[in-house]
């Protein structure tokens, strides 16, 4: 099983390295978005007067970016594999569903990890955030979020037959995530129904950990609850993706 998971992850990473344009865009897009964020927030001096600390939001927006990019990327590529027949060929050539799901997670998590590292470095220097004391907590949370995002992408890919059908699913996940994860609006200020709904948003748990350790200066240990929930959501999504990945039409 591990040999096959590794074979898939290696194959995906090899494809990334061969597709220079795709690789370049995957790395340049988060950089450009972080620069844009910096520019927009700096041009709003009124935020400081309102007592809003821009740096408090930077890492949360960075987490959102990692989530968004990993989710969209894994959904589209898996749908393409299904459409091109390579997914069907994988099944016929001995790969099992759980191996495929975990292999894709392994492969895409590598590029998601690179994107995460890039975003964290930019966050540190653009927003002057000292990540060093909480680096382990931040990195673990971001990586867990990346795995959750890929698991979500694999699961969503079951519902699309081609790349075009993926697009309606992008706002379906991304807009509620932006509104209900606690990035834009504190969850406590949402109506009770939406507060319940926010438990379904994986990013909520990552935001809770990152906000706790970086902005509220709490220890990672005290944020273990949401962190473990994030990990459990990831495990649940991967299990669901493994069970629902269509092997037979």
């Amino acid at each position: 099983m591990f040999s096959n998971i590794n074979a898939i992850a290696v194959r995906i990473n090899r494809q990334f390295l061969r597709d220079r344009r795709f690789l370049g865009l995957s790395l340049i897009v988060p950089v450009l978005l972080m620069l844009l964020l910096k520019y927009v927030l700096d041009s709003l001096p009124g935020l400081a007067r309102l007592g809003v600390h821009i740096s408090d939001y930077a890492i949360l927006v960075a987490a959102y970016l990692v989530h968004f990019l990993a989710y969209v990327l894994s959904t589209i590529v898996l749908v393409r594999d299904r459409k091109d027949g390579t997914l069907g060929r994988m099944f016929v050539y001995g790969y099992r569903r759980r191996e495929i799901v975990l292999g894709y997670v392994g492969g895409y998590s590598t590029i998601a990890a690179v994107q995460t590292a890039l975003v964290l470095i930019l966050t540190k220097y653009l927003f002057d955030i000292n990540l060093a004391p909480d680096l382990i907590a931040v990195v673990l949370t971001m990586l867990a979020l990346a795995v959750v995002s890929v698991g979500l992408g694999v699961f969503i890919s079951n519902f699309a037959r081609n790349e075009g059908q993926v697009f309606p699913f992008i706002p379906l996940v991304i807009v509620p995530t932006a509104l209900l994860s606690g990035i834009a609006i504190p969850i406590d200020e949402l109506p009770r129904v939406l507060q319940w709904c926010s438990y379904l948003i994986p990013l909520r748990y990552a935001v809770s950990v990152l906000d706790g350790v970086l902005n509220q200066h709490r220890s990672f240990f005290s944020e273990l609850g949401p962190f473990l929930t994030l990990v459990a959501v990831g495990a649940g999504l991967l299990a669901t993706a493994s069970l629902t990945l269509r092997e037979r039409e």
Binding site: N4, R11, Q15, R18, M90
Partner: peptide, 19 residues
């Protein structure tokens, strides 16, 4: 139904490992 970014050999290595 092969990966176009990869060579024939890389494709065969990948699909050959399944079994």
């Amino acid at each position: 139904a092969l990966y176009e970014d990869l060579s024939p050999r890389e494709n065969l290595v990948f699909f050959g490992r399944g079994f």
